[in-house]
Design a protein around this nucleic acid. Sequence first.
RNA 1: AAUACGAGUUGGCUUAUCGCGUCUGAGCAAUUAGGCGAGGAAAGUCCGGGCAGCAUAGGGCACCCUACUUCCUAACGGGAAGGAGGAUGGUUGGGAACGACCAUUCGACAGCCAGUGUCACAGAAAAUAUACCGCCAAUUUUUAAUGGCGAAUGAAUGAGCGAAUGUGUGAAUAGCUGGCGUAUGCUAUUAUUCUCCUAUACACCGCUUCGGCGGCCCGGUCAUUCGUUCACUCAUUAAGUCUUGGUAAGGGUGAAAAGGUAGGGUAAGAGCCUACCGCCCAACGGGUGACCGGAGGGGCAGGAUAAACCUUAGGGGCUGAAAGACCAAAUAAGCGUUGGAUGUGGGGCGGCUCGUUCCCGUUCUGGAGAAAUCCAGAUGCCAACGCGGGUAGGUCGAACGAGGUGGUCGGUGACGGCCAUCCCAGAUAAAUGAUAAGCCAUUCCAUUUUUGUGGGAGGACAGAACCCGGCUUAUAGACUCGUAUUGAGA
RNA 2: GCUUCCGUAGUUCAAUGGAUAGAAUUUCGGUUUCCGGUACCGACGAUAGGGGUUCGAAUCCCUUCGGGAGCA
Length: 132
Amino acid sequence: MPQTFPKSERLCSKKILGELFKKGSATVGTFYLFPFRVLYLPQPESLPESNVLFPAIVITVPKRIFKRAVDRNLIRRRVREAYRLNKHLFSQEKPIPGYIAFLYTAKQIISFEEIEKGMKLAIAKCKVKNVE
RNA sequence: AAUACGAGUUGGCUUAUCGCGUCUGAGCAAUUAGGCGAGGAAAGUCCGGGCAGCAUAGGGCACCCUACUUCCUAACGGGAAGGAGGAUGGUUGGGAACGACCAUUCGACAGCCAGUGUCACAGAAAAUAUACCGCCAAUUUUUAAUGGCGAAUGAAUGAGCGAAUGUGUGAAUAGCUGGCGUAUGCUAUUAUUCUCCUAUACACCGCUUCGGCGGCCCGGUCAUUCGUUCACUCAUUAAGUCUUGGUAAGGGUGAAAAGGUAGGGUAAGAGCCUACCGCCCAACGGGUGACCGGAGGGGCAGGAUAAACCUUAGGGGCUGAAAGACCAAAUAAGCGUUGGAUGUGGGGCGGCUCGUUCCCGUUCUGGAGAAAUCCAGAUGCCAACGCGGGUAGGUCGAACGAGGUGGUCGGUGACGGCCAUCCCAGAUAAAUGAUAAGCCAUUCCAUUUUUGUGGGAGGACAGAACCCGGCUUAUAGACUCGUAUUGAGA
RNA sequence: GCUUCCGUAGUUCAAUGGAUAGAAUUUCGGUUUCCGGUACCGACGAUAGGGGUUCGAAUCCCUUCGGGAGCA
């Protein structure tokens, strides 16, 4: 099972980001689970049968809570590492969300173990919600 | 050795697994092998430059910044070396005012005799040297005392009175004095004034019956005599007052008051004069320069503030990599304004979607004209700008540079020359992370005489975004050097 | 990236370089009332931090911190 994290799995397009964070959109699903607030979009219908195995994600750490760039970088790297090591949970079933945003909402810097635990739960919940 | 302060250096190390960014190689591709991968501040954005675009004949005004000297540098408000000046401490000259030397440290330090402004309170006065108080001289006038058929003064004689000096008591005031005290001050001494006591006292001299008695230095007053001077609607003395003049010594203040001390001098005073100290000018000498020393001269000018306006000298064109260049995609063949060119449509022919030395037709609106016709506009083409709308992808800029490291030479130093060697992040929603082990430093617990052993916690400030040179700020711990103090040893 | 402004009592604001930084309001204490309100009296401040210029700084200068606005 690949544990890589190439560029194609990172959400960079400004257009999709604007759609994801647009308020009141019916297509955007959202839920909260301890360290994160998760937003996701389903796979776009227009795309042909592509070999997309994993969704594209974006990680956000608020500047309002963490003033220093060093702290924000550390949290973002830990969250990304936790996703990279656990994203294989997605590949077991076919319908996966197209784009996911992880918003870090805790008020302190928490350890990698806790982030990883939260990430596993978030991915499982995301899968269940997407199927519905 | 420890502690404190200052300056500087450093800013955990190694390995494994899974990942990330970039470069090179292999592969049709999936993929794979190897190299490299944050800092001294990458931060703040406080300065300076490179680079890029725009503007630009030359000059000036305005605005902003800088300001001891020399040097370094691409440049700087940065740095180096130095010079005035200040502060603290110590030593020292002097009676004081005021200096001299040493150590440490600060050091935005051009110009208030170009102009303007400000200087609260207090104080006579706050920038003009002089109004006020005070001191002195003259003058006006008032009062008091004394004198006036004399008065003043000197001498002699006599009388009485006062009472000094040598020997005392108490009090007040002042001060540029001494001592003590951190200081308000206390004390001693001195000067002046006042008060009290003493004159039948003591001391001293003469006489003595040894019990006592008499005398005393000076001043003025009165009486008498003599000499000299003056002689009046006033005189003298004292106190006040008006006016004029001379003064700048003194006047409790204040952050700041126009040299200080001593002596002479004067009606009173004053650098008015003298001595010493301070100050100003300055021949000449030293230094690249700031500046330093200073023969000699001058009785002595001058408040503070320019981080107040301002003056002088120097500098600054504006905007910043979201600059700017190119490619691709997309929308509209739209609307408006301005300018330019010009007939337009159809057919034929060549050719194959463009051209034309050919033919045919000729629209609408307005104006002028008898008409032919002429003019203007619409429609159509091109360009620029704006609106509306679209896109928001990529390449370059952009990683070899005022580069790093080492050596050597020049320089007090900042720094520079030469030689050798190295290539050392380059992303674009943005790469350094996670896990495990060991070592290093710190700390806690247990054990141990100690060294040590075992276990746990746990790693300062902080993350490149066009690039450099500085400044400022943050920074656990370790190391080096210097200074001071303490302790131990020789 | 660039430009510019501000910071004063718990809050909203004053201040010519010149005593002890003032006003309103809040809070607290007291008086008045049987009690509460109202009214009256009183108290409470490191001028954001540090350094400098000046006899003297909230004010002038430098620097740090925090906040706001504008342009692209």
